[in-house]
Amino acid sequence: MKIAYLYYDFLNLYGESGNIKIISNILKYNKIKHEVLYLSLDDKLEFDKYDLVYIGSGTEDNLLIALKHLSKYKNDIKKYIDDNKFVLVTGNSIDMFGKKIEDNKALNIFDYEVTKGSRKMEEVYHNNILGFINNNSYNSEYNDIDIIRKNNFYGTYILGPILVRNPEFVKLFLNNLTNKKLKYDLKLETKAYNQFIKNFKENVNE
């Protein structure tokens, strides 16, 4: 299995490496051979070789630079998603997959357009997903707390280590990715999830 962690050194504002680490730990636990490819602006991308593509969040300037690089592979990405291959996008990188970001043409996988405005922050506890949002993206179709889906593309404005904080989500995601019912040792992750909700969310309405 080949995991492409795109722009690992460029779009990495919110602890994104946590997602890669937990995927790798779980695959190892199940003795599934895998390789993480750390790829970025200087690299040539070969989408036909990847089983999972992950992209995290970055500064507004960096996002546009990454978009320029990624746009070279626009057709490859579209084919990759149409072929039901896996993508996970967290944070403002999801902006790149719409029609445009302000006046910049984007990848056109989805129909939304993104404008930039004032910064908004929010703790998320929605559809049982825990997380945090901090961005200035205004998406014409989706809310910040949505999980944006198309085939096996999963995108969200929720930041960073979403797979580590949400044990049920990581199970679902990795079972789908491997097309197997994997073994999991997520007792600590589940305890942390439950404790966080008990401490801070019990009186919060979803």
Partner: peptide, 10 residues
């Protein structure tokens, strides 16, 4: 009182 925890991973 915002409980972002992503920084732990940085």
């Amino acid at each position: 009182d915002l409980k972002d925890l992503s920084w732990l991973y940085d």
